[in-house]
Design a binder for these strands. Structure first.
Length: 418
RNA sequence: GUGAGUGUAGCUCAGUUGGCAGAGCAUCUGACUGUGGCUCAGAGGGUCGCGGGUUCAAUCCCCGUCACUCACCCCA
């Protein structure tokens, strides 16, 4: 083989692609009802956009970015996530001048240079939203509810919604110190990674899956007890609003964000059947990011659904692909040309029509019609041409109906559902 | 970046204690001169991942390498 696709990227064909369309169609439909509009952004940006917002010491920036130099000597990066480029666009085009909140959605590929494994690719796809300009927890709850609606409607079952608040720039540092204090004495009970995290990012210790760490961190202070008055009120508001919308959730104070820009609300939808990569979708609030990017103080909240995570969970609930309404089996050159023209005219009337191109036995033509799942078939030979009439066969019940070789007459028969 | 496993037909996989490369599925053709799904027959399709070594002989044994898969880290 001469050429192969790169590691961690994939080609998507039918019937797989129908599942993608199924999800995208549902998402678009739901977004529209909530007033979210599509935006299309570049997949490549100046590197600083990511390193400044996601955090210099985050894993994404430290080792997972697709970064290279372009011909002008600039450091550019394929986007590893959608929020930072969105905020760049939001600030650049002064979108805050529109009525608040501004609601947008996007779908497309993201890139992270990681070792691929189950449900994790280097080029992966997300459907995401961003709502800007209000810190009202109603907006948070609405976004979560919308996410839940989309996931349910695509066919997802057995998923779990987890929420927490990770505080703001005022209360989080305080909590961080308290956490470090409580762990300090028994640091030797933790794994090597956690001992490193202790200094660099102590919050991550809460997320460690090593059993000795889970044990050792028991009794550690919880972020929810350290929220400042404003953050606590906001979190209560979120819970209250979720209750109003009958969205059920579980509290998980150990949700940790890999990205530095998050504040307050953080949530995740997880599924145990995914194994170790169990997050299907995740999101949160980022109230300081716009300002950091040089715009006016504008709060925001967003989430992203991982397509490759969702697809395996709903695969079985998507119905099979349809076949053409009509398939022509011509016998001979003249019949072939007649079919060729009729097919084109029927398509113009809105029907899905196909024909057999290369001459072959009727038997093999019928076989092909069956294989492509055709609903009806017309056999066209010398006899039929002479009479201007043919037989149209319903492939389900094998019934044959006489029909004149005219667009109107054929349409009448294939239009009605079998 | 770390660890483990696997590379044989389009797909799923057998196989040879080292001796002409196999099955099922899929594809195409035929079994009625013009009617599909089931059945039967036939055909096409291979650098046995790649490179080296041992051997009269390597798909098989040894070394290297690449790719894929899974897990860790982390994440959607």
């Amino acid at each position: 083989m001469r050429f192969k696709s790169l590691k961690g990227v994939q080609d998507i064909f039918p019937p797989e692609v129908f599942i993608w369309q199924h999800i995208e169609n549902i998402a678009r439909e739901v977004f529209q009802k909530y007033g979210y509009h599509e935006i299309r952004l570049p997949v490549i940006e100046v590197t600083d956009i990511f390193s400044r917002s996601i955090g210099e010491t985050s894993d994404i920036v430290e080792k997972e970015m697709y970064t290279f130099e372009d011909k002008g000597g600039r450091s550019v990066t394929l986007r590893p996530e959608g929020t930072a480029p969105f905020v760049r666009a939001f600030v650049q085009h002064h979108l805050h001048n529109g009525p608040s909140p501004q609601k947008y959605y996007y779908l497309g590929p993201m890139f992270r240079y990681e070792r691929p494994q189950a449900y994790r690719n280097r080029q992966f796809y997300q459907i995401g939203i961003e709502a800007m300009g209000s810190e009202n927890p109603q907006l948070d709850a609405e976004a979560v509810s919308m996410l839940w609606t989309i996931l349910k409607r695509t066919g997802l079952k057995d998923a779990r919604l987890e929420i927490t608040s990770i505080g703001c720039r005022l209360c989080r540092p305080e909590y961080k110190t308290a956490l470090q204090k409580s762990i300090k004495g028994k640091l030797k009970d933790f794994c090597e990674d956690c001992r490193r995290r202790y200094k660099a990012n102590p919050l991550r210790i809460l997320d460690c899956k090593v059993s000795s760490c889970i044990k050792a961190r028991k009794g550690a202070p919880a972020i929810l007890d350290y929220l400042c008055v404003e953050c606590g009120g906001h979190f209560n508001g979120l819970k209250h609003n979720l209750d109003l919308l009958n969205v059920s959730y579980v509290l998980n104070p150990n949700i940790v964000r890999g990205l530095d820009y998050y504040t307050r609300t953080a949530f995740e939808v997880t599924s145990e059947s995914l194994g170790s990569q169990k997050a299907v979708a995740a999101g949160g609030r980022y109230d300081m990011l716009v300002k950091e990017f040089g715009g006016p103080q504008t709060p925001g909240i967003g989430f992203a659904i991982g397509m490759e995570r969702l697809i395996p969970l709903i695969k079985d609930s998507v119905e099979e692909a349809q076949g053409p309404d009509l398939f022509f089996c011509p016998l001979g050159r003249e019949a072939s040309e007649k079919s060729f023209v009729l097919a084109e005219q029927l398509r113009a009337e809105g029907s899905w029509v196909e024909m057999n191109y290369d001459s072959s036995s009727l038997r093999s033509q019928m076989r092909k019609a069956d294989r492509v799942n055709a609903r009806t078939v017309i056999v066209l030979g010398e006899d039929e041409l002479k009479k201007g009439k043919a037989v149209i066969k319903d492939m389900q019940n094998k019934k044959e109906t006489a029909v004149a070789l005219k667009v109107k007459d054929i349409l009448e028969i294939i239009k009605k559902p079998s």
